[in-house]
Amino acid sequence: MPAAALKPKPLPTQSTAQHPVLFDSPYEPVIKRPLPAGRPREWYVAHNRRLKAMRLAIALLDSGVHMPGRVRNETIRSTAEEIGMRPPSDTTCHMVRAFMRYSR
């Protein structure tokens, strides 16, 4: 028996399926769970800051801004206002640029 006959068939993809593969659209975020209790306050502050910076980095990338070195704090703050977020601090703006840098 040839070796090719022993290989399992791969799952169908968008280009090879007889029926179109459905994507989740529009995207629904996962259900939020409470944060674990008993951590120091600094942990919660850093965690929420990272989440905010990630949301802002995604919004900037979706809007077509791809050069983190050229994004000024004012641009990040105006994007935060557009998506209904409070204006980020300078530290959070720095973190947004870092996330954009590492996503490449």
Rank of each mutant, 00 (worst) to 15 (best):
H66A: 13
I58Q: 10
E28P: 09
L56D: 05
M95K: 07
P26S: 04
C93T: 06
E42M: 04
V65D: 10
D90S: 13
R101L: 05
I83Y: 00
L60G: 06
N73F: 09
V45C: 02
G69Y: 00
M100D: 05
A53W: 09
I83H: 00
S63L: 04
L6M: 11
L11W: 05
R41K: 07
M1A: 11
L51R: 15
P10R: 01
A5Y: 11
M1S: 12
P26Q: 04
Y102H: 11
R41Q: 10
R72W: 05
W43N: 00
D62E: 10
T16H: 03
I31M: 08
S15F: 14
P36A: 00
R97S: 06
E74W: 07
R50I: 05
P68S: 01
R72E: 14
P10L: 03
Y44T: 02
R50A: 08
S63H: 10
E42W: 01
P12E: 01
T13L: 05
E42S: 10
I83L: 01
I31R: 13
V65T: 14
G64Y: 01
S63I: 01
V96I: 04
D24A: 14
P20G: 02
G64F: 02
M54T: 15
N48A: 07
V71E: 05
R77L: 04
G38T: 05
F23K: 07
P8K: 11
P40C: 02
L6D: 12
A37F: 02
R86V: 11
R86Y: 08
V96H: 06
P2R: 04
K32L: 11
H47K: 07
A53N: 10
R104N: 09
G69P: 05
S78G: 03
E82K: 13
A53F: 10
M85V: 06
P40M: 00
W43Q: 00
K9E: 13
A57H: 14
G84P: 08
C93W: 00
E42C: 04
T79M: 05
N73R: 01
A4M: 12
K9C: 09
M54E: 15
L56C: 08
M95S: 08
F99E: 12
L11E: 05
L60W: 01
L51N: 14
M95R: 09
R39T: 03
N73H: 08
R39Y: 03
G38F: 01
A98I: 14
L60F: 02
R49V: 11
P68T: 01
